[in-house]
Computed example of a mutant assay.
Amino acid sequence: MSSVTAARTRYRIHLENERRKKESEAKGQKRRAMEEHLEQLKKSRRAIQEVSEGLARDADKLADEAEGKQVGSKMAELISKSNAFRRSHKEKLAELKNLDEQIAAKGADLRRL
């Protein structure tokens, strides 16, 4: 009788250990997925930041070039292009802000795990 009781106890312990092991593996997989997503967001942020800086540089270059031109259609064209680059730059800055918020939220979620 005591042997059967001990066997049942060992079996329950075994089942409990298996359940904990599965939970641990599930948490690990979830954590890895979140880390990968966070890394993708960071890569995306770096790419957008590079594009944004390039747009600002190009806008400044065009504005400087327009400054050197005589009043006329070429100057107006350069200013127009410069302004288009600046608008795109502002849009990229808004995207960066959004990505920063997403990165912060994912980082907080990751710390909670």
Rank of each mutant, 00 (worst) to 15 (best):
M1E: 05
S2Y: 04
V4Y: 00
V4K: 01
T5K: 09
T5I: 10
A7Q: 00
A7I: 01
R8M: 10
T9V: 06
T9F: 04
R10H: 09
R12I: 02
I13E: 05
I13F: 01
I13W: 00
H14T: 05
L15D: 08
L15H: 02
E16N: 11
R19M: 02
R19I: 06
R19C: 07
R19T: 12
R20K: 14
K21Y: 08
K22H: 13
E25R: 06
K27S: 11
K27R: 11
G28I: 01
G28F: 01
G28A: 07
G28V: 03
Q29S: 04
K30F: 06
R31D: 01
A33C: 00
M34Y: 02
E35G: 05
E36I: 10
L38S: 01
L38H: 01
L41G: 05
L41W: 03
S44F: 03
S44P: 00
R45D: 05
R45T: 07
R46Q: 14
R46P: 00
A47T: 11
I48Q: 07
I48K: 12
Q49H: 10
Q49L: 15
Q49T: 07
V51D: 15
V51C: 12
S52I: 04
S52G: 09
G54F: 06
A56G: 08
R57P: 02
A59P: 09
A59E: 03
A59D: 12
L62W: 08
L62Y: 09
L62V: 07
L62C: 01
D64W: 07
D64A: 11
D64T: 07
E65A: 15
E65M: 10
A66F: 11
A66W: 06
E67V: 11
G68T: 03
Q70V: 13
Q70W: 12
V71Q: 09
V71N: 12
V71L: 08
V71E: 14
S73F: 10
K74S: 13
K74Q: 14
M75N: 06
M75Y: 15
M75K: 15
A76T: 10
E77Q: 11
E77P: 02
E77S: 13
L78R: 13
L78E: 06
S80R: 12
N83Q: 13
N83T: 08
F85P: 00
F85K: 13
F85Q: 15
R87N: 10
S88C: 05
S88W: 09
S88V: 01
H89A: 05
K90M: 14
K90T: 15
E91R: 04
K92D: 10
K92M: 12
L93Y: 00
L93R: 07
L93N: 06
L93C: 03
E95F: 00
K97M: 05
K97C: 03
K97H: 03
N98T: 12
N98P: 03
N98V: 04
L99C: 00
D100K: 06
D100P: 00
E101R: 05
Q102M: 08
Q102K: 14
Q102W: 01
I103T: 05
I103E: 02
I103G: 05
A104K: 12
A104G: 08
A105M: 07
A105F: 08
K106F: 13
K106L: 10
G107H: 05
G107L: 02
D109W: 08
L110T: 01
L110W: 03
L110E: 01
R111G: 04
R111K: 14
R111S: 06
R112S: 12
R112D: 02
L113P: 03
